[in-house]
Amino acid sequence: MSGQDSDYWRANVRIILICLAIWAVASFGLGIVLRPMLEGIMVGGADLGFWFAQQGSIYVFLVLIFVYAWLMNGLDRKHGVDE
């Protein structure tokens, strides 16, 4: 594998790990671990911790899908592997 290929995959894996970390914080962190701290904040009739556990992590995941696609398109163009 050439140096440019290595740079491409290193950047790709970094983007994936950052997206996974954000999703883990949103779903596990805010929905489970930090739920007691978010108990008094109301969103749509439910406290914020419950909202993140039920819906918020899904919304974060959907946003991350679009952000990942946008970032990967830019990375592909940068490395000359775009379609």
Results as ranks from 00 to 15, higher is better:
G40I: 01
F52H: 12
D76L: 01
I58L: 06
I18Y: 09
I15N: 15
W70D: 04
G40T: 12
W9Y: 11
G56K: 08
Y8N: 06
S2I: 00
L62D: 14
Q55Y: 12
G29Q: 09
G44D: 15
E83C: 05
E39H: 05
Q55M: 14
M42R: 03
Q55F: 09
A24V: 10
V60I: 13
G49K: 05
L17V: 05
D76M: 08
S2E: 09
V81L: 09
S6W: 00
G44A: 12
L17A: 09
F28Q: 04
D5R: 11
D82L: 03
E39Y: 13
I18G: 00
L71E: 14
A24S: 13
G3M: 07
F66Q: 09
A26C: 05
A24Y: 09
Q4H: 06
A46H: 14
L30K: 04
F52M: 15
Y59C: 00
L38G: 10
I16T: 04
F28M: 05
Q54M: 06
L34T: 08
G31I: 08
L38M: 13
G40V: 03
V81P: 00
G45E: 07
G3W: 12
A46Y: 15
Y68T: 06
L34H: 04
S57E: 07
S6A: 08
L71Y: 07
I32E: 09
H79F: 15
I41S: 12
P36C: 03
C19W: 00
A26K: 04
